[in-house]
């Protein structure tokens, strides 16, 4: 756990996000109908989901670690990762809804990916409710870790397999949005998108570590009292 106290990756996160903020607004983008300039949202909306996914994967990792070692810190890390993931979930959802309003015409158009995201939200709400329903600390840590691991593969199916099998307004679907697949080939956009993914993922980890450190102090204090 030395890693979380290092500074270099936090600097990297800030530099990458800053780079995408500038280049995302200034670099050339493909000229597409309907989307117009909003294609730049790709750099600011999609990385939110990447950040959420990173936080949730980390949370599952710590849940596994908890089941193997039984150290309470790992449980705290897992729950704080979920909390951070939920923040990025909210940001991804709101920005996505705004984008959808001005390109697809509705805030909520019942797109498979939108629905899947809503279900994934239910899943993690259930995780948090489960945590609150158990008083005894070790049982709580164990059971919520098990639920977290159990639910994760299903969420992956939900978010990445099912939407691809049906018509979706999002790119990558079976029917797809024909005007939108062009950017797959645009190397300019990759130059911004991938650094954005890495930068926001690191940023979400940073937030999670801060929350984790606060949680650790609270936990120690409760243990002493």
């Amino acid at each position: 756990m030395k890693f979380i106290y290092k500074t270099w990756w936090k600097v990297l996160a800030v530099v990458l996000v800053f780079y995408t903020l500038i280049s995302g607004m200034l670099f050339q983008v493909p000229r597409l109908d309907i989307l117009h300039e909003t294609i730049r949202n790709l750099y600011f909306h999609v990385p939110m989901w990447m950040a959420m996914l990173t936080a949730l994967v980390t949370s599952v990792f710590f849940s596994v670690l908890y089941l193997r070692t039984g150290k309470e810190e790992h449980d705290l890390a897992a729950v704080e990762c979920v909390n951070t993931g939920m923040i990025f979930y909210g940001l991804g959802l709101i920005t996505g809804m705004l984008w959808a309003k001005y390109t697809w015409g509705e805030f909520w158009s019942g797109d498979p990916k939108q629905n899947s995201a809503a279900i994934a939200f239910l899943l993690y709400c259930a995780y948090l409710v489960l945590r609150n329903s158990i008083d005894e600390e070790q049982t709580r840590a164990k059971i919520s870790a098990i639920y977290n691991i159990f639910a994760f593969p299903i969420m992956i199916v939900l978010l990445f397999v099912l939407p691809r099998m049906t018509d979706s307004l999002h790119p990558g679907g079976a029917g797809g949005n024909p005007g939108f697949n062009k950017y797959d080939l645009d190397s300019h956009m990759r130059l911004v998108l991938y650094p954005a993914f890495i930068g926001w993922s690191l940023l979400s980890l940073w937030i999670a570590t801060i929350r984790y450190r606060i949680r650790l102090i609270e936990h120690k204090k409760n243990a002493i009292n």
Binding site: H45, T95, Y102
Partner: peptide, 16 residues
């Protein structure tokens, strides 16, 4: 060209 949608997106992220 709907650039303000992008601006609003960035604003939402930052406010969040």
């Amino acid at each position: 060209g709907k650039i303000y949608v992008v601006v609003a997106t960035i604003a939402i992220v930052f406010v969040g």
